[in-house]
Amino acid sequence: MPKPIRYLLYLAVFALLAYNSVYFKKLDEVKAGTAAFDAAGYARDFWDKKLTPGLSKATDLNALTALLKTDKEKAFNEHSHALGIGNIRYFLVKGQGVVTDVNENEVSVELVNAGQTAGNVRLATEYIFGNAVRDASGAIDINAFTNSMDFNNVSAEINKLIREKVVPPFKSKVKKGDRVTFHGAIELNRAHLQVNDIEIIPVNLQIEKP
């Protein structure tokens, strides 16, 4: 094939590829069409419209721990949520108990079941991190987000709400011997189940003075 024709052919292929590869727009038009994701607003909306109403469906922690000891698979299959595959699963739980200790990072609670003590749990009051609350609800669909950063920011904002709105009023009043009612999220490992040292990320905390 003669060189000029060959070069023309190369040019045509290049032009075709380039034409189908890029497009041009005015930057301000693009910016106007893509408002930044408001994770804080989404988290507040989720808290008010999905999480708080959903607390009524939380699993009773005493019943859950009993079921975990007798039929682990059923407990995980019926009461836990998680986004992906893996052994880490999240539960939305509720319960009542008596405060046995208050320290800087957590409040220890002895669970009460029909007047009987039924084990101890820890209510986290300082280190509120992770995705437990977001994922335990099972009410957020990852596919509704365009990227994982936005999705993770929602979790961070939910944790911030807990740190700012749930924990301070509780922490300022709670004392040893108080009777508390709680709703919250817990994380359990299906493969390495540990039910004797459960930490609860609180969503709702109520104190009933004795």
Binding site: N20, S21, V22, Y23, K26, L27, E29
Partner: peptide, 17 residues
């Protein structure tokens, strides 16, 4: 894509690009 603020230009890429 690629943003060129000085030219108020946005270069978008198709999947092929």
């Amino acid at each position: 894509g690629i943003e060129i603020p000085s030219q108020n230009l946005y270069i978008g890429f198709t999947v092929l690009g």
